[in-house]
Design a binder for these strands. Structure first.
Lengths: 216, 216
DNA sequence: CTGGATCCCTCACGATACTG
DNA sequence: CAGTATCGTGAGGGATCCAG
């Protein structure tokens, strides 16, 4: 193994290549946040609690060199710098969703110092989405967890999930981390409301739908 | 961020959990090899060129503690130790396949010191398999690349791919790394044979099928 | 304020040798 | 065969500083 210098695996294999590109620490989480939309350096930092700025800089440069991320200066008058996924980078969505779905199975309760970010929740909605559970369904949800607000537009087997409010939502759900128990099927929609895990406003029966559509 | 000691990400998020468990160096490649089947310590070493034995030991212990891998002593007279995936670990197949498929897109030509392992090729067949391209098809392939021999049983939209020979194969393909060009659609099945990229024996028209079924 | 650059320190990884 | 022991290096963590 002459030169294992640049962190390769010495194998002619697709998975090895993927891990060489995205296996460094924080790499996949950066991609997760960019899958939600383009972001500025500082916004990425906010979504990745504790990442050292030099590490974020390195990752972005590496991902740019690998063709996953593109650095772009917005036209005047904005003039600011944003990072966004290339076409190639966007093709990671399926893998990130798969991987996140697997990890969600053993999520359990939040650990003491753990935080919740808007992007991770939006991606969680994409991960847990079950197209087969909403054929012919059309529903717009706004989901609030603490001060994190995300939304999902469900439309006949497809979904768009993103951060922020949704003024024309059919149902607004206010909940805490306990919402996981609902999505894991450990409690029913009715119990979630009775136990104070969630409060809803809007078309109530869409909450039962929600529990069917988003499923760990 | 009080204690980021044990390599966590401080986020209540499925993807973060997955990366905490599998994001360490060599982790996913170990899982890839175990997805093909249970393996002994030394066999894992052989499939992971250059992995230090102490690192392999650490990974296996961590993965065992995470519930992904199980260490098992075979009953007498064998008495040897094997590592295998738990049910939970086996559920990683979809994610590994997705991830490997993404990485295969930018595989290019093999780098100088890169090797090919049986397990990685078997997993590559699972990654590139397109169920929609073989409805009603039944075919058994044996694929040889150098001294690496794997096989695939394709049966009406499903596949079993593993290492080793397949005595009742309908078609035996002998090829080099150039086979990637065929699977990437850069050349046709006919050209692959003309250019000496591949030699086949058996039912020739199944080779055209092969190029349709396994696709990067 | 944004978008980093620089420093120091620690620990995970890589290489090698050795053992029951 | 299936690991342990030891040691050197470099990537990552964390704080601070700086230009536009």
């Amino acid at each position: 193994m002459a030169s294992m210098t640049n962190r390769t695996y010495g194998q002619y294999c697709g998975l090895s290549r993927a891990v060489e590109i995205l296996g460094e620490r924080w790499g996949l989480l950066i991609v997760r946040d960019l899958l939600i939309g383009p972001k500025r350096f500082t916004d990425l930092q906010r979504g990745l609690p504790g990442i050292p700025s030099n590490v974020l800089t390195s990752r972005l440069k590496e991902l740019e060199k690998s063709g996953v991320v593109r650095r772009r200066v917005l036209p005047r008058p904005a003039g600011s710098v944003v990072y966004e996924l290339t076409e190639y980078g966007s093709e990671l969505e399926e893998a990130v969703v798969c991987f996140g779905r697997w990890g969600a199975k053993s999520l359990g309760e939040p650990r003491p110092d753990e935080i919740v970010t808007p992007d991770s929740i939006a991606m969680a909605l994409r991960s847990t989405f079950r197209p087969e559970a909403c054929q012919g369904v059309r529903a717009n949800y706004e989901l609030r967890l603490g001060d994190v607000v995300v939304h999902a537009r469900v439309h006949d087997g497809s979904i768009e999930a993103a951060t922020g409010r949704l003024p024309d939502a059919d149902l607004v759900i206010e909940a805490g981390p306990g919402i996981r128990a609902l999505m894991a099927g450990e409690i029913t929609a009715g119990q979630a409301i009775e136990q104070g895990v969630a409060r809803v406003s809007g078309k109530r029966q869409l909450f039962d739908q929600f529990a069917k559509i988003f499923r760990i």
